[in-house]
Design a protein around this nucleic acid. Structure first.
Length: 257
DNA sequence: ATGGTCGAACCTCGA
């Protein structure tokens, strides 16, 4: 089973790029972040033509998450365990092909001294609790998405400049480590030790051209799935195209026999 | 050089 995480930065602006990626790679499941569209305007037909069904949680202009799968989607659950009715649409969970897939878009946090940063940390705490109350580390589960946190120095193009700043702050590291302590493993890191492999580059200042990026998009898997990991790839090709998302898709392959 | 570039919807915000 091939599973992808991709922050598309607007599904309507990116539908052709997404379709091209799906045709090239034929993943079974695609977790999408930052759809930036209300449910009624989501491009279901384009994905349907390629054989994908979609579960989604959209809102106007900002945020929005979706999961597309070639297999039936069941037990769809939107939001963190304690989300109120007006919560931003940042998490959707489904079961497909026997795997629980949780797709999330963690708040950016804006800047470490602002209230938004504390909300980001709280989101990660609440994400851990959501896993605790709805899932088991002994079952096949993939938690994927844009976490807006680079975990290690090798995930940052200039670790000294980023030290203590947004995306690379010790409080963010502790909060994300708490999520992983549920019983999850970073699929890309389980297979690759290399530095300089990023999933996001700022649109500005030629950052992609100069590989000034961060690895902030992850697929985290439970132990049983880690033992069945066959590959993990960050596909930078879509980032090279005209009108790209600022994020690259990350894909894993699981041998589920 | 405190810059720069996107998407969505609106004349600005969030990233």
């Amino acid at each position: 089973m091939k599973i992808v995480s991709w922050n598309v930065n607007g599904i309507r602006a990116r539908i052709d790029a997404v379709a091209a990626f799906l045709e090239r790679n034929e993943p079974d499941v695609l977790g999408i972040q930052e759809t930036k569209v209300v449910d009624d305007d989501f491009p279901f037909e384009e994905l349907g033509r390629l054989g994908y069904q979609v579960s989604l949680a959209g809102q106007p202009a900002y945020n929005g998450v979706a999961i597309a799968s070639r297999m039936p989607l069941t037990d769809v659950k939107v939001g963190l365990f304690d989300d109120g009715p007006d919560a931003e649409k940042r998490l959707i969970a489904v079961t497909t092909g026997g795997v629980r897939v949780v797709c999330t878009y963690v708040p950016n946090g804006k800047s470490v001294e602002l209230p938004s940063f504390q909300e980001k940390l709280r989101f990660l705490e609440r994400l851990r609790t959501t896993l605790d109350v709805t899932a088991s580390p002994d079952a096949p589960l993939v938690l994927l998405g844009d976490f807006n946190v680079a975990r290690e120095a090798r995930d940052v193009y200039d670790p000294q400049a980023f030290a203590g700043r947004l995306h690379f702050h010790p409080d963010e590291h502790r909060a994300l480590d708490r999520v992983l302590a549920f019983g999850l493993f970073d699929a890309y890191r389980a297979l690759h030790e290399d530095a300089g492999r990023y999933s996001w580059w700022d649109y500005r200042s030629g950052d992609f051209r100069n590989n000034r990026g961060l690895r902030i998009d992850y697929l985290f898997v439970t132990q049983g799935l880690r033992d069945r990991l066959r590959s993990a790839v960050i596909d930078v090709e879509p980032r090279r195209e005209p009108k790209p998302s600022d994020h690259a898709p990350v894909m894993i392959e699981l041998d589920l026999g």
